[in-house]
Simulated assay, not measured.
Amino acid sequence: MSGELIGTVVDEVAFDVERGKIWEFSRATFTTDPVHTDADAARTAGFDDLLATPTHVVVAGHRRDQRAFVEKLGLALERVVVGSVRWQYLRPLQAGDSLRGVRRVVGDERRDGKRGGSMRIVTLETEYVDSAGTPVVRQQDVLIERGKSA
């Protein structure tokens, strides 16, 4: 299966960037910059509304069918770990933004482990666009599926 899934759309998700969620992320990540919690401070800094924190798009995970995407990729969930997550912001997200994300497979390979066995490494990329269809965030996730134990 390695490599043949490249380009496959895994799922699509849509959500609004909400003030309440921005506040929750700010609190959870101990964010101190008032542009995330005070609309007046955000406006003074030149924005229309509260700025979302850098990891805000993880809310998409609450709207996705995680089991379905794991099955679509042919992964054994009990052997999968997240290797890394990266975000590239093309512009700041603000309260009131409506986003749609399409997640695709951009890498799928098998590697031999240093201690024997093999692993599968699947790289996913989600491009989030705003209501005008303009890309605003790209997220890359690397999933590692450990080989079966003997």
Rank of each mutant, 00 (worst) to 15 (best):
L90C: 05
G20Y: 04
Q140K: 03
G101L: 00
P34E: 10
G83N: 13
V136T: 00
G46A: 06
R104V: 12
R79C: 09
A39V: 15
V82Y: 01
A45C: 07
D112G: 14
K72Q: 12
E109L: 09
G46H: 07
L73K: 01
E127S: 04
R91F: 00
G83F: 08
R100F: 12
R110A: 08
V82Q: 14
W87Q: 08
H36L: 11
T31M: 14
A28D: 01
H36D: 09
Y128H: 04
P34Y: 06
Q139I: 02
G101K: 00
V82G: 07
S26W: 08
V59N: 13
V82A: 09
V106L: 05
K114S: 15
R86A: 08
A39Y: 07
G96A: 03
R43W: 12
R110Q: 12
V80M: 02
V142Q: 06
E127H: 02
L50F: 07
L50G: 08
V102T: 15
R115D: 10
L77D: 13
S131R: 11
E71V: 09
L124Y: 02
V59M: 12
T29L: 15
R111I: 13
T126G: 05
V35S: 04
R79D: 10
D130P: 06
A45T: 10
R100P: 04
G20S: 10
P92C: 03
I144G: 05
R64G: 00
V137Y: 00
T32P: 07
R91Y: 00
R115N: 13
R103Y: 01
F25P: 02
Q94A: 13
V102D: 01
G116F: 07
V105D: 05
R146M: 06
Q139M: 12
G116H: 09
A45N: 09
Q94V: 15
Q139V: 07
V142I: 13
S131H: 06
